[in-house]
Nucleic acid binder design. Structure first.
Lengths: 203, 203
DNA sequence: TATTATATTGAACCATGGTTCAATTTGTCA
DNA sequence: TGACAAATTGAACCATGGTTCAATATAATA
């Protein structure tokens, strides 16, 4: 509060051990959140990272912040995958793959599943995720709608809802498959307009 | 442990105030569980019932037992409604109404929604519910399958999963309707076999 | 190597919420 | 109306789990 403590936005390079620990913590947190969901305990994460709890709080100020760091960390992969889906020749395939991917992700990462469902909890994290992924999902959906394959009334927010059933439970691959099958079938526009072959489909 | 404490299965009639309180508690518990879900606090229930916490534990030994009492309490209505659905002329209507009813119930009663989803938690309550409702749901489904309207691969356990998205969130009636629409559409068998009119449909 | 800012430690703190139980009140019945 | 079992009370107990912080250790730099 005295001297000339004008911190130029970037301080000093973090210490080597600190950098290592940060990585270890993120890995451990990811693992524990995946298995235990949002209920994962800070002590457990610390133990798995080979570090004391205090260190978690030194790096990330709070449990929620740690969670957010983990989530944001994995966000790029997700975004990249969705970007790729936009390049799919068949728009409907994009929708299929999108749901399949989210489903798989939910099965492997409990916290992920719990996050995309809940609305008001953990404002920050949820917001960050939705901000980042929402527009991409929207494009995927719109493309499939424009091609007449996806119900016109579906909106981005429907996707997490429809996938909620896959969270927090153990289910056989068969059950999971059937679930996706049903939802996808429900999302798809029913009768492809009886198009007597020979005429252009849309106009 | 001494004297002749052979309790003939029925003891003595419960006291009048106790009977009143039991009712008040059940009502309060129902209300709080509906609003706060399984996280409803015993103190809050007691307060709402105009009673001390200890009384809750006198009547029901534990929070889980209280929850179960509340659930079992409402089970008859549910069972009765489902029974009625079996009398529906059109089997598919039975499925529609079943989902609609469960959905509505989930929207109005948070604990209900949380219960039908979770698998290993609260073994007793969950078991009781499923024991009682499972067979009925199964009949409704089988009837619709026999009539060729419902996907043949659907099993009882799929229904809670498919409805999970409606739990723990606030959603507009429109969204809820769309959700049900999608799921029901996904459950329904696609093309009614193109049956050139004049021939019997099934054989 | 001496110095110091940066990191780490983990026991202790605290809030939450289910549960207990000795003291007290109250319904019931002779 | 006594007398006693049944019922109620609510403060205290306890476990859980996130968070703090003074003491300590360590990497970086001169």
């Amino acid at each position: 509060m005295d001297h000339n403590e004008q911190r130029p936005p970037s301080q000093r390079a973090p210490r080597a051990d600190a950098r290592q620990n940060r990585i270890r913590i993120l890995a451990a947190a990811h693992a524990r959140f995946a298995v235990d969901g949002l209920a994962a305990e800070m002590d457990a994460i610390a133990r798995e990272a080979g570090v004391a709890v205090g260190t978690l709080y030194h790096h990330f100020g709070t449990k929620e912040a740690l969670l957010e760091a983990v989530v944001v960390d994995g966000l790029e992969h997700l975004a990249a995958y969705m970007q790729a889906l936009l390049a799919e020749p068949d728009p409907w395939t994009g929708v299929e793959r999108l749901l399949q991917y989210m489903a798989e992700r939910q099965m492997n990462d409990r916290a992920f599943g719990e996050l995309i469902g809940a609305q008001p909890t953990l404002r920050a994290t949820t917001t960050a995720t939705k901000r980042s992924l929402g527009p991409l999902i929207q494009q995927i959906l719109q493309r499939a709608q424009a091609s007449g394959q996806l119900r016109m009334d579906v909106v981005v927010g429907d996707i997490p809802l429809l996938l909620a059933g896959l969270s927090e439970r153990t289910m056989t691959p068969a059950t999971c498959q059937r679930y996706l099958d049903i939802v996808l079938s429900g999302l798809r526009v029913k009768q492809t307009p009886p198009a007597p072959s020979g005429l252009p489909l849309i106009w």
